[in-house]
Design a protein around this nucleic acid. Sequence first.
DNA 1: TTTGTTGTAACGATGAATATTACATTAAAA
DNA 2: TTTTAATGTAATATTCATCGTTACAACAAA
Lengths: 142, 142
Amino acid sequence: MQISSRFTLAVHIFACIDTFKDEYKITSDFLASSTNVNPVIIRKILGQLKAAGLLDIKRGSGGASITKPLDKISFLDIYYAVECIDNGELFHFHENPNMECPIGRNIHLIMDDKLKRVQGAMEKELASITLQDIKKDIKNML
Amino acid sequence: MQISSRFTLAVHIFACIDTFKDEYKITSDFLASSTNVNPVIIRKILGQLKAAGLLDIKRGSGGASITKPLDKISFLDIYYAVECIDNGELFHFHENPNMECPIGRNIHLIMDDKLKRVQGAMEKELASITLQDIKKDIKNML
DNA sequence: TTTGTTGTAACGATGAATATTACATTAAAA
DNA sequence: TTTTAATGTAATATTCATCGTTACAACAAA
């Protein structure tokens, strides 16, 4: 299973807000058009990003804006915000290993620390990338 | 979305084979009992591990055995073998970004290298863990 | 030939992701 | 105050992957 496209969508959304904030009002319809994704889906993601304190949304008049300096928003912040992961665990475990079996009884003891290392390596890399890096790439290509 | 339990199941399977290979014939029913997972699911995973060259399965008489030294089988080998990931990409991208939009047109150019770095960090850590590490932990706990 | 096992097809249940329609709520502008 | 254009959210549908389950043909050894 892959990580939900909510993550790439969220980054796309931030890129749009930062790039177009002076030219356009950033509404869910605007973002839906750029991503080619349904506006209701966009609003749900915007809601999650707002709940995480990463952006502001104006009701009524409309419009989304970023709340922090771009170098203070990492991929990891976004990843957590859009809840790509069940209860924080990257790996799904088989639920009911047999407690009568020495392996079944200890499989978590054997594997959990290793899985945590893998997840940690991934999250460390996510944390090392910020929206500032994205902005720089966009500037170079426009 | 989480990574399929096929991965933790596969590691569990290897642990059982190595631990019980001298006492029992390792059949899909035996493994189904230890993992508490349906034998057909087990057989499918065994098939994938065999296709990857990580173990042998005897038809008819039955029984699975490991084909390589344990320190030559890494978590990454297993991870690839059970196809936890669509076409090798960890992150699912929104499919049809708007090519009329400068961000939509370039979103892959902007993000792909970064996502690859994240995936690479995770796979590097997976590659650093082998079944030999698992065996050592099992010995310490029995 | 019998027996126990694997390989696999077929079908179902469940849950997540994504799309879509609809509408109440809201805030600013007219 | 009314109009207008957004947001927030519920409800429903579709699609897809996972996992469970039954059934049975193919197979190999006793």
